[in-house]
Design a protein around this nucleic acid. Structure first.
Lengths: 233, 233
DNA sequence: GAAAATAGCTTGTACGTACAAGTTACTTTT
DNA sequence: AAAAGTAACTTGTACGTACAAGCTATTTTC
């Protein structure tokens, strides 16, 4: 594991677990250097990442302060659902992973080297406090992930499974966001009325594995939980 | 001007103006160092920023490649409308900047030190090819920007005005995104029907001036142009 | 006692170096 | 002619140093 990533994960974990609460100052850059046997350049790279994702605020002359996180679904900068609201979150698998042809519902052009491979697809319904809030479809080429369909999800998280079973990380994403009227199918699953507005997000995730791109299609009921996004420095 | 910001702006300008087109490789990091009399650390900081905003892709062992930008409104990571679609974009001022009380339409808690100041507000309608696509409301404390109401906008851009007249830069933002039904007022301005879905974005921009926060409220017709967002590394 | 100076911390920018690792084109070997 | 090796580029990580600039608590001065 790279040194800056290791520190980044370690600090993020401590923030998420409540070791540091909003308002707290993290150890200073020099202290982190001593604790982890790294240089300030490396420590700052980890803190840069935490800042971009909105976990901390850097105060010139003071330190790195843990930020208050709003209760939104926090999805746009983020690699999944797990960094979201501090509430009971779960997922219902509507269509378990299986082999299909490439769907025309994918809003991004599928890369050529992937089109020739077969496509794995799965569909889930995300719930907060047992209320459905997001319908999620994912497509990707089967080549990079042998035996994926036989595996279960680590902690119910697709991205954790990618990381822990295949050592593949998300390194970027491109998204398009629209407000649309719910189709009868989407409305039924999200328990809203056909014609109600839904947030439609198309995402194309690039990963550390060059032949794996993940194409996602999300429909969100934002009545109770808006989608959040933050950006710093 | 800081060295890394200067290089960042210079490269971004060249990409936007078409000096480098998608697929081109930028000068290598070492070449940029020679051209601008800086070290690789500084050059990389500028390239990091361009990468995060989706302008370039870094190819290990090859170089920094200019990315294909999709024709979306590209607003979420971005500081304004200007980085958007390569089409005719303009704005109609519906309510010129003037002093008002703090509106209850602001979706974020207004900071205490700002509440005591008076509030400047303006409203604009953004158009692409003369079709209205976004209704924009902005609020901020008057203290940081003396005589703002008397000034015109530089190139029609609020953020350019902040930068060039007041030397204030956007350093972060927090956003909440919802799909809603258009009110009759919003529908009339966006030339859609009341009840049609609109994308509702609430933004809170933090700036390099500690006593200036900009609160924005956007309503978008995403039928033709979705809102785009990208994230890399 | 109040104000000003100071010392010691913090983060921000920028310098320079070294080596690992990926890509490419050329050269050598087979 | 094909394959293997190599040299010269590229970016990625990490080291270490220096000074600027912001914050805070203490000390000194008035």
């Amino acid at each position: 594991m790279l040194k800056y990533k290791s520190l980044y994960h370690s600090l993020k974990k401590e923030i998420q677990q409540g070791t540091f609460i909003p308002g707290d100052l993290l150890p200073s850059e020099n202290e982190l250097c001593d604790q982890h046997q790294i240089t300030r350049t490396t420590a700052r790279k980890a803190l840069d990442e935490l800042q971009r994702e909105g976990f901390i605020e850097r105060l010139h002359g003071k330190g790195s302060q843990v930020r208050e996180r709003r209760k939104s679904l926090g999805l746009l900068n983020v690699k999944g659902f797990s960094e979201a609201v501090g509430q009971q979150v779960d997922a219902i698998m509507l269509q378990a992973p299986d082999y299909r042809g490439w769907s025309d519902r994918i809003q991004f052009p599928v890369k050529e080297n992937e089109q020739s491979a077969s496509c794995i697809h799965f569909e889930r319904l995300r719930c907060v406090n047992e209320e459905p809030v997001m319908l999620e479809n994912n497509w990707f080429a089967s080549t990079a992930l042998p035996n994926f369909c036989q595996l279960g999800f680590v902690d119910g998280s697709f991205f954790k499974t990618l990381s822990q079973c295949f050592f593949i990380e998300i390194v970027g994403s491109e998204q398009e966001i629209r407000a649309e009227v719910a189709s009868s199918e989407v409305a039924r699953l999200l328990r809203i009325l056909p014609g109600d507005p839904v947030l439609h997000i198309s995402i194309c995730f690039s990963t550390s594995h060059s032949s794996l791109t993940i194409y996602s299609e999300l429909y969100c009921n934002t009545t109770q939980y808006p989608i959040g996004n933050s950006y710093h420095l």
